[in-house]
Simulated scan of single mutants.
Amino acid sequence: MNVPKSEWPSSLDDKELEELDTYLRVHGREGDLMLDGVHGLLSAIAVGPLEVQPDEWLPEVLHDAFTDEDEGNRVLALLAKLNDSITAELDVEAYEPILGEIDTEEGPMLSAAGWCEGFSRGIDMRAALWETRLAEDPELMQLLGPVMALAVDEGVLQADAEFERLSDEEYDECLGQLPEVLAVVTAYWRDNVPTEKEIAAMATRPTDEEPPPRHRSGHWVH
């Protein structure tokens, strides 16, 4: 689809992104999602098998009650706009992941750690469906290959076997493939909707089941 840039959906501008980023950093604790992680979370939800309502994902993003009503309304409005923009951007092939940066000896470098952590948590919103399908259909695992490679490389997910770290070129290549990955995963779930059996299994899954081991690495810097 070749849509003129003037007709791209309304996404958060730089000022709005900075405003939301500042709020999340000021109110976030260790392990909480920052802006890159929130974008990854909402991206996974957008391309996933079943709708996830805001009252389900907001607790992954906001952890304290708002002390200022106006500020609270503003933050919620920014999150809603960010959420809506993802599907709209995917529809016109204008999606770009929001990534963090890490300081290295060579200078600042893009990091997918936060985005991958958020994407993993987004999958957890419908974990039973994802895990069942990933176990039964190798096509979905193949489609998610670049995301999995980045997540393992960043330590967000643990590999079952010994994993060789990505080279800088391979890392950048995986980053560049993220928009395409999300597009094909969206198409996959559209063409392979969850069965009644899969949905029933999700409903009966124990709520205290431990999630797969993972941890977040990397940090957000300007």
Rank of each mutant, 00 (worst) to 15 (best):
I86Y: 01
E170Q: 15
E30W: 10
P4H: 10
E136T: 13
I102Q: 07
P206L: 04
V26C: 09
S120C: 13
D208N: 12
A135R: 11
L20V: 06
P194R: 03
T186I: 02
H39I: 01
W130F: 13
A135S: 13
E106H: 06
L12A: 08
K15H: 07
D36I: 02
F119M: 04
G155T: 01
D21A: 11
A44V: 01
Q177I: 00
E209M: 09
L166Y: 03
R165Q: 10
S217H: 15
G100S: 15
E18N: 14
D36Y: 04
V52M: 03
W189V: 12
R121F: 06
A80F: 07
D91L: 08
V75A: 02
L134M: 14
D172C: 07
P97K: 03
K197H: 14
E96S: 10
H219D: 14
E96K: 10
T195V: 08
W220P: 00
C116H: 00
W130K: 00
P59L: 05
D64C: 08
E16Q: 15
D21G: 09
G100N: 05
H219A: 12
E196T: 11
A65Q: 12
T186N: 10
S120W: 11
P108E: 07
G72C: 08
S111D: 12
S111C: 08
L157M: 12
D208F: 09
L99T: 01
L166H: 01
D13C: 10
G107E: 10
H63G: 05
R133K: 15
A65H: 12
L99F: 10
L17M: 14
L134C: 06
V185E: 07
A46L: 04
R214K: 10
D64P: 01
L82I: 06
L134V: 04
L33W: 06
N73P: 05
T204E: 15
V152E: 00
A46F: 00
L76Y: 02
R29F: 11
V3F: 10
N83A: 13
Y171G: 00
N2A: 07
V38T: 04
E93K: 10
M141S: 15
A203C: 11
V193D: 13
R190D: 14
C116M: 14
G31M: 07
D153Y: 01
R133F: 08
V152Q: 02
T132F: 04
V184Y: 04
W130V: 02
V52R: 04
R216F: 12
F66C: 09
D70I: 06
Y95K: 03
A128Q: 14
D191L: 12
Y188K: 02
E198S: 12
A128I: 09
G40A: 02
V26S: 08
L129V: 09
V221W: 03
E169L: 01
S167P: 05
I45N: 04
P9H: 03
K15S: 13
D68W: 02
E154F: 00
E18M: 13
T104V: 00
E106Y: 06
S11E: 08
G72F: 05
V185H: 05
L175M: 10
E51V: 14
E30M: 13
R121E: 05
L157S: 03
V92M: 08
W8M: 09
L58P: 01
Q142R: 11
P213M: 06
S10M: 09
E51M: 04
S167E: 11
D21R: 12
C174Q: 02
W220I: 07
E136V: 03
E170G: 11
L17Q: 13
P211C: 09
N73M: 13
P206V: 09
E162T: 10
E154G: 06
A128N: 07
